[in-house]
Every structure is written in structure tokens, then in C-alpha cells.
Amino acid sequence: MRKTTYIQAINEAMRDEMRRDERVFLMGEDIGHYGGLFRVTRNLMEEFGEKRVIDTPISEQGFIGMATGAAMVGLRPIIELMYMDFFLVAADQIFNQAAKMYYMTGGVVNVPLVLRGQHGGGKRYGSQHSQSVESTFAQFPGIKVVTPATPYDAKGLLVAAIRDDNPVLFLEHKMLYFTRGDVPDADVDYVVPIGKADIKREGTDLTLATFSYTLLQALEAAEELKAEYGFDIEVVDLRSITPLDMETVLASVAKTGRLLAVHESQSNCGIGAEIVARIYEEAPYLLKAPARRLGMAPVSIPVSKVLEEEILPWKKNIKAAVLEMLR
């Protein structure tokens, strides 16, 4: 084990898979010569050349469509979008094309495509560069949605995404990029399976199910709730949204009897709403108190620091929600 940043972990996953499998190639804006807006694709063009690391024009729909086509004939493209918000520009190619191709063709054409995108609030980028829209993607069968929060999970899940035979949305929160964590040595080949949650903190009083950057906020909130109130919160890192590992969530709630689902995307019609609905459908008898969700307020993301802090479901808001449920 060694410590790397989240960025480094993602960069290594792509590099290792490109070395291992010549079908893997990259497309995106400023990813080659510049090395990516956030330097995630640094040095890859130097190693793999312009044929496999392709600097595209600002034509998201066009190049995601081309990547879909290349994937339809067996290559394994990885798309980088510097902001997840831009995936909406290419919505048809993602939702109507890549996600549905395998089904529409009766299983004769599949699309092994990875869509990497940076997302989330916290850096005052405002309404069109801060969104988390993974629940929109989760509405479309055929596409997997992966949301790692640690460098270890980021590398292992990206390797799994690249080896997957389906389109995978891989989300990288902008607040996670410079976080550091343990990652196996460079020569260790490991995979984190898509669709498997991970308990990041054990506890007995309440299950907090979350993913991506709100996981770190939830862990901090849990420590403070322990120190300040003596509550023991169990924090479940979902890691994948599609498929959703309800088994791990249910096992945790069996222990705690309480569930709060937290995410940065919209509360309305979100993943939290889904998890809460499913616990009532599948195991309502586990609950000692009503299950709840906490997402973003139904507004667009403002730029002002104080306004952004108000609406994001981060530590302060997580603690408040937990206290309402436990007091």
C-alpha cells in the first residue's frame, strides 16, 4: 500500500488498462497535449500517442456518438468530460443510444463505453458546472452508474468499468480530486466490483447511506456526532448507484433500525427517494423510526459561498438531519 491522490488513482487505472488492453482509448476536450483540465489524463498522450488519446473539438454529442460507434464494434473508449453538466449536451447519444443499444438489438450489439465526468458543488462554479445528475442516469436501464469516494475505490472501480461490457457513468467529485488515500502498489492488479457497497464506518444507532463526496462529509459528521452526543453512526458507501446494493443497506438497517440516505443531487425523485421507497417495500419491519433522505434543495446551484453552503447536503445539514431522527 501507498498513498496517492484520487486523481493519481484514476490516471493509473487508465494507464494500466491501456497497457493491458489495446482496445482501450481516450477521447475528450484538452485531455491529450494539455493533460486534462484537472490533469487526470496527464502523460497518457506521451505514452500512448495521438491515436489512442484523442483531443476532440468541443462537440460532446458528436464525439460521444463516435465513441458509442467505436464501442459498438468492440473498442473500449473512455470519454472524459470536464464537467458532468456537459453530459446533458449529449443526452441523446447517452440515453437513447448507448444505454439502449443492447436491448434494442436483442443482445447482438453492446456498448462497452466509460463516461468519466467531474461533478459537484463546493468550488463556487454555479449552476452549470456544479450539478450532480446521477439519478437522471439511474432512470435509464442499460447504463451503470459508479460513484467512488476514495482513491482505492476510484482505481478499482474504474478498472472494473473499463472491463465492463456495458456503458458506465463514472463520477468524480471535484472536492475529491486532491484527497489522498491508501492504494495498492502500482504492480497490483485489483478490481472493486461494480454494484457492491462498502461499510466505511461501523455503528449501531443509525445507517447513513451515501456516496461520492458526501461520504467524506458523512464520516466527519459521524465523528462529531459521536464526540458531541455519543451517537454511533454506521456509514455505508454505496459506491455504485446502478446496480444499487440494497442488500448491504438492509443488513445495516437490520442492525441500526434507522436509515438516512444522503446525496448531493436533488432530493426530489433522487437516489435517496429510491432507497427509502425500497426499504418500505422490502423490509419496513426493520425500521424503528421513519426512514429519511437528504439531498439538495430544489433550486439550481448558486455561486455565492454562503448560498452554496446553505443548500448543499454537507456536514452541517447531515448532522441536523441525524439529530432530528435520533433525538
Partner: peptide, 15 residues
């Protein structure tokens, strides 16, 4: 929508 697909297949042939 099928037009970038074919173009991507041409790219695949090139790669």
C-alpha cells in the same frame, strides 16, 4: 444519431 456511430466505427477501423 447513427451518423457519429458510423464515423466512430471508421475511427475504430483506423485505430
Amino acid at each position: 444519431a447513427q451518423v457519429p456511430h458510423a464515423t466512430g466505427m471508421a475511427l475504430a477501423a483506423r485505430i
